[in-house]
Amino acid sequence: MAQAQIGIIGGSGLYKMDALKDVEEVQIQTPFGAPSDALILGTLENTRVAFLARHGRNHTLLPSELPFRANIYAMKQLGVEYLISASAVGSLQAEAKPLDMVIPDQFIDRTKNRVSTFFGEGIVAHIAFGEPICKNLANILAEAIASLNLPEVSLHRGGTYVCMEGPAFSTKAESNLYRSWGATVIGMTNLPEAKLAREAEIAYATLALVTDYDCWHPEHDSVTVDMVIANLQRNAINAQKAIQETVRRLRQNPPTSEAHTALKYAILTNLTQAPTATKEKLALLLKKYL
């Protein structure tokens, strides 16, 4: 199977990477089923990358329907070591304006119906997740964005991403609660990805693209669907520039990441006595520890 060191997951509005060359579609099956869509392998900045449209290229999957495990496992099957996840978000703070970019370093989990681990069925693992984003990858992403001087875009380094279940947006009471917690943005997808990427020993960073203010904002009711769609489209253009520059920098100097050895002390089960079927299912994750 073709390989790629860098993976890109595109969220709402980002369904393809226009700058990809030598493109091929790869249909992948994993022990956890099929990913959201075919993975697109292509060359970006002289580097092979794998791109996946998180909700499918025609946006057919609700956040709660996403095959998170299949998506991350497929990236692992392709050899991905660094994963950049672009995600549309609502802002919980006045300073994070529509069209801004946020690189959060923390998450709060408000999901209810997500499976966020590869483990179980006879093998127990508990990853360390106090720092859920790879700091080195996030720094490269931030430096890449800063170097572009994108018009109308302010970059916010750090912050907390609230991951909600959806598909309905927050009530005002919830929105104000999250603000009282000091959270920065709200979305529906990135926390399961971050947990699974850590279990798969893939360095992960979120590029959160602000489309609008969440419903706490006094002017929120004046936001129209047309405005949000226009912001999604502009965000997608800016995200592609940011990702392309990040890939260029990653190619030149791929960083070390604690994520790359995340399972070293995480597996509690004696693997010599674990169920054979589960070891086979998770062979890609476990092979260096067997």
Rank of each mutant, 00 (worst) to 15 (best):
F32M: 13
D37F: 09
T272D: 13
T224Q: 08
K279D: 14
K16T: 09
A168G: 09
M75G: 02
P275M: 06
P104C: 08
Q106V: 05
L148V: 11
V102T: 13
R114F: 13
L150N: 06
G11A: 09
Q93A: 13
R114I: 15
V225G: 05
R249G: 05
L250W: 01
H260S: 00
R198L: 04
P132F: 01
M17V: 15
I108K: 06
L137G: 00
C215I: 11
L191V: 05
L232Q: 08
N270R: 01
F68A: 13
N136I: 00
A94V: 06
R179I: 08
I267Y: 05
R248T: 07
F118M: 04
S180P: 06
L62W: 14
N238F: 15
L148E: 13
E199C: 05
D214E: 11
N231G: 06
I229Y: 03
A70M: 10
A146H: 13
P104N: 10
E219V: 09
I9V: 13
N231Q: 10
Y82N: 00
A50K: 04
G166Y: 09
H156V: 11
F118R: 05
L41M: 12
A38D: 14
S175T: 01
A230S: 06
T47H: 12
K241T: 08
L196W: 10
Q77C: 10
A94D: 12
V89I: 12
L209V: 11
Y265E: 12
L196P: 11
D221F: 11
A205Y: 01
H220S: 14
K97F: 07
E143Y: 10
A2P: 15
L78W: 05
H220M: 10
H156M: 11
A274C: 05
A168M: 13
I145M: 13
A197S: 13
L285S: 06
P151Y: 02
C215Y: 04
A259E: 00
P132Y: 01
K97D: 05
A2H: 12
M1G: 14
G42V: 07
V80I: 05
Y82I: 00
A70S: 14
T272S: 12
V23W: 02
N176W: 01
M227P: 02
G42D: 07
I72F: 03
A19R: 12
M17R: 08
G158V: 10
R157Y: 13
V247H: 04
T224V: 11
P35G: 11
K135E: 00
Q273A: 05
K135V: 00
G56W: 14
A88H: 04
E174C: 01
P31F: 05
T278S: 12
P67Q: 09
Q5L: 12
D214S: 08
S116G: 10
N149K: 09
I237P: 03
T276N: 15
A200K: 00
T160L: 02
S170D: 02
A146R: 14
L232C: 04
P63R: 15
A173T: 03
P255I: 01
P132D: 06
L66G: 15
G182A: 05
Y161W: 07
W181K: 06
F129G: 08
K288L: 07
V115H: 08
V89E: 10
I186Q: 05
I145E: 14
V115T: 13
E152D: 15
L232S: 02
C134R: 00
P104I: 03
A94H: 09
G33R: 03
S175Y: 01
H126T: 03
K97N: 14
A230F: 02
